[in-house]
Simulated scan of single mutants.
Amino acid sequence: MPEAAGTLAENAPAKVNLHLHVTGRRPDGYHLLDSLVVFAGAADRVTAAPGEGLTLSIEGPEAGGLAAEPDNLVLRAARLLAEAAGRDLPGVALRLEKRLPVASGIGGGSADAAAALRVLDRFWDLRMEATRLEALALRLGADVPVCLASRPALMRGIGEVLAPAPALPGFGMVLANPRVAVATPAIFRARQGGFSPAATLPERWADAAGLAAGLSALRNDLEPPAVALCPPVAEVLAALRALPGALMARMSGSGATCFALFADAGAAERAAGQLPGGWWRWGGAVRHG
């Protein structure tokens, strides 16, 4: 749907961790990660239109999950970008169409903040250097830098060390969430055992089956504590693995959203319709750049 004159918009796609290894912990308590990240077609949408001052309206099927939030990341991103610009900027009315579930392990809030930085950089005609935008993104959260580009990447450090992903084949994906919010700090506290090595990945995978086989040798180190604290995660994983054509399934991030890989987007879209109607669910294509 085209936007009104003077209005700009950016999608905020779901971030999916195909694997997630916890490789260490910094003295300040932040955990070090190693993850192959991709972005699904499922997305929120951030719109900027001329307005008085700085305002934000939130709508969409998942807007209720943000009702109690005192200061949305979209507003924080806008204020941070305005401060970095160092000059008076035109007023803007921001609108967040919330389609992704909140606190669900697919980076919804981080993706929203990244989309706000992108759309406002255009709306205010700042043309800010990519490195400056990336630095601002990191100040908003560890996942925001990878969401700024919203393309496949290897994510290390606390999320700020990014490298190009191996060449990915075409494949489809189903996302499912049992509508149970999971608190990331609690998952990290519940994690047991030592740390994992960073994954060794090939330069490319020939097809979706090869990608799934390679990922099956890896893991999400946060999945066991998430299942212990949130048993519905195990139900979602079992349902995904039982879907016709599912190549592999795993939890994303700290949960509770889980994903399954399929040979193509059509197979994923059909499979998503077989999941319980009370869950948040999506099936389709994965962004490749």
Rank of each mutant, 00 (worst) to 15 (best):
E3Y: 10
A4C: 06
A9H: 01
E10T: 03
N11S: 14
V22W: 04
T23D: 08
P27E: 10
G29F: 05
Y30V: 08
S35T: 15
L36F: 06
A40G: 10
D44N: 07
A48E: 05
G53I: 09
G53M: 13
L54E: 13
P61K: 11
A67R: 15
E69M: 12
E69Y: 06
V74T: 04
L75D: 05
A84C: 12
G86E: 11
D88N: 11
L96I: 07
L100F: 07
A103W: 05
I106V: 15
G107K: 02
G108H: 01
G109W: 09
G109Q: 09
A111C: 09
A111K: 04
A115K: 00
M128W: 04
A130Q: 10
E134C: 10
A135T: 13
A142N: 05
P145N: 08
C147K: 00
R151T: 13
G159Y: 09
L162M: 09
A165R: 07
P166M: 02
A167V: 15
G170K: 06
G172D: 05
V174Q: 02
V174W: 02
A176C: 15
V182A: 14
P185M: 13
I187E: 01
E203T: 12
W205S: 06
A208V: 03
A208F: 01
A208D: 01
L222V: 08
A226V: 11
V227M: 13
A228V: 05
V236F: 05
L237S: 12
A238H: 12
L240T: 02
A242H: 14
L247K: 00
R250S: 14
C258W: 10
F259T: 03
L261D: 02
A265G: 09
A265L: 08
A268H: 01
G273P: 09
G273H: 12
L275A: 01
W279A: 05
V286A: 05
R287D: 10
